[in-house]
Design a protein around this nucleic acid. Sequence first.
DNA 1: TGAGAAGTACGAAAAGTTTCGTTGACAAGC
DNA 2: GCTTGTCAACGAAACTTTTCGTACTTCTCA
Lengths: 128, 128
Amino acid sequence: MSKSKMPRPTTAELAILRVLWSRGPSTVREVQEELNRSRKTGYTTVLKLLQLMTEKGLVKRDESQRTHVYRAHNSEASTQKQIVRGVLEEAFGGASHKLVMQALAVKKVPEKELAEIRELLDRMEREA
Amino acid sequence: MSKSKMPRPTTAELAILRVLWSRGPSTVREVQEELNRSRKTGYTTVLKLLQLMTEKGLVKRDESQRTHVYRAHNSEASTQKQIVRGVLEEAFGGASHKLVMQALAVKKVPEKELAEIRELLDRMEREA
DNA sequence: TGAGAAGTACGAAAAGTTTCGTTGACAAGC
DNA sequence: GCTTGTCAACGAAACTTTTCGTACTTCTCA
């Protein structure tokens, strides 16, 4: 499935993807235990989600062992980009700068990260 | 209902809110006609949505005339902030700078708007 | 070897979202 | 006063997302 027609992950799916991105390839049990740190979730719930996500192409499954191992199909960055695109259209009418400014306003950003943003801005201006 | 426990608007709800923000207080018919520019939507669909949104507190309804008039309860900016907060937690693990950089990367931002962002950054540094 | 533990598959219930048909109230014009 | 058009209310269908019970298989080890 091409990346562009990939459906946007739902909330529960994202929670799972975040575990996979941070832990790397994992079993159902491992994902479930990690999720339980923040929110109680039954084993079969996680299993079912991962099965559906496999069908949708959001994750890949290694079935070579009895205990299957799942990994995210798309990178964290590319999934985030897809989500941003969605939010941008849906809630901001495409006005990226508004999204940027809200993101900066919502939460104090460390100096180091502000510098990163500045650099990106510089680079963009140089290319324009 | 306090702003903080206000549920995040769904996709269809957001489409309606965007009309209300841009047109100001409007009747069901007016909202529906505006929505039809981009995507065919039945009258009763819009009506039902607006009724549900009234219950949820997302919009306010003026019933003094037979033809009711709806207006958004929260401002565009505060709703956007709420959405950004959600996306930030759900998909970015709270890393605002990543959200900012994805937003900048997704779509070319006009020079004028980049300048606005720079100004905001300057202001933030001065205050820090 | 057989009892229990750990795993997958499947189906369906529960919950949330979106759509629309139908009904009855009210209004406007003839 | 009757007819036609516009509107709100309601209920239900269709669809999506989330949750979990149950059944069956495989592995472990006493």
